[in-house]
């Protein structure tokens, strides 16, 4: 996607966000089967098919400019969305290097990076940014390196320090989270920040996933999908701003669910970073309304079945309970009960 026509759209107030037909087609629909439960669904993050969301290390799409604008609005309202503990400075530079090198390599028409030893120049055409700085010298950048690039890549980012046999969430840039708080979770260890997730304990999921990540290697990033639902195409579904988006959950009816209710899918990718030995956890959020989803009937059918028998703890945790009935009623129109073959493909 090198010649993107960026859409001017909003993720709040009048919510003008929509997906083009091409964006719907490449949407990361996460359900290969009619039933869903948590699992350690981790796979190698290797470059995928051209045009797909995993073609590149970091996906830049038609929402890029508007999403970056929304990040600035959220940061301006709440400074706690960016935080980095002092020992994470090497990881910050690693993040800047990885994102700049990846974007410049994968989208040369949009981004360029020129290096003269430690003198780097970064050009971001869509956002009209150009800066020269000395790599490793934070005083030569307008913001801390992680903050600087966190604003220029779609998605949320956590930097994890590995020590004492676990991972610590010691830095984060979080403006599009599915209801968790960076200001509260910063500095927590793996099992602490995952504490609220139901049902995983007895399956040993978190222990296995942690062991796997602890031996994650540079050059072999991995990814997984996670999902939830959001009412209205809102990126900032933070607990901080819950009073702003919470009431929307009660406005869903079987009539308006197609337009209001969105499937929210996170492409989460994990990279071992070079100098800091930290792990980058990137959370790229994709939103699609049920109406858009129903462009492909097998997606609507499948989602109906997944939601119908979702474990009650997951319904509660993901905050779906209050509008569950309304959403099921809307989706049921699209489900004729016929069997669907396994797989996540649209058509």
């Amino acid at each position: 996607m090198n010649n993107l026509a960026y859409k001017r759209e909003t993720f709040r107030d009048d919510y003008t966000y929509r997906n083009s037909p091409a964006a719907i087609r490449r949407f990361p629909f996460p359900f290969a089967e009619d039933h869903y439960m948590y699992s350690v669904n981790i796979e190698q993050h290797q470059p995928g098919a051209p045009g797909s969301i995993v073609e590149h290390a970091f996906d830049i799409d038609e929402h890029y400019v508007s999403e970056c604008k929304d990040k600035l609005l959220t940061l301006a309202q709440d400074k706690g969305r960016y935080a980095a503990l002092p020992h994470m400075m090497d990881a910050q530079w690693d993040f800047l290097e990885l994102t700049m090198e990846s974007l410049a390599r994968d989208y040369p028409q949009l981004f360029t990076l020129t290096k003269d030893v430690d003198h780097w120049t970064w050009r971001n055409r869509p956002l009209e940014i150009e800066d020269s700085f000395i790599f490793g010298d934070a005083s030569t950048l307008p913001l801390e390196p992680f903050d600087y690039m966190g604003r220029q890549v779609q998605g949320d980012f956590v930097l994890l320090d590995q020590r004492e046999g676990t991972l610590f969430a010691d830095a984060g840039f979080i403006t599009s989270q599915a209801d968790w708080s960076l200001a509260f979770d910063i500095g927590m260890s793996w099992h602490e920040w995952h504490g609220p997730v139901p049902q995983v304990e007895k399956m040993g999921i978190m222990d296995r996933a942690l062991k796997f990540l602890m031996s994650l290697q540079q050059g072999s990033p991995v990814r997984r999908l996670n999902w939830t639902m959001t009412i209205n195409p809102r990126l900032d579904t933070s607990p901080e701003h819950f009073p702003e988006w919470g009431p929307d959950k009660l406005t869903v009816t079987p009539q308006n669910a197609g337009e209001k209710a969105h499937l929210r899918v996170e492409l989460q990718s994990m990279f071992r970073l070079p100098r800091s030995n930290a792990i980058l956890f990137s959370i790229r959020c994709y939103l699609i309304s049920l109406e858009e989803l129903a462009t492909y009937p097998r997606w609507a059918k499948r989602f109906h079945r997944v939601l119908k028998d979702l474990h009650p703890d997951l319904l509660e945790y993901k905050g779906i309970k209050v509008y569950h009935e309304a959403v099921l009623a809307w989706l049921s129109q699209h489900d004729d009960g016929a069997e669907i073959a396994a797989g996540t493909h649209p058509g």
């Binding site: 708080s181 509260f184 500095g187 602490e192 504490g195 609220p196 607990p239 009073p243 919470g246 009431p247």
Partner: peptide
């Protein structure tokens, strides 16, 4: 008052209970 606890803050998370329905 949730059971989610932050050691750095020494406190449990408090979330507005009537946010959905003031």
């Amino acid at each position: 008052v949730r059971d989610h606890f932050s050691r750095r803050l020494g406190a449990y998370m408090g979330l507005m209970i009537d946010a959905e329905e003031p």
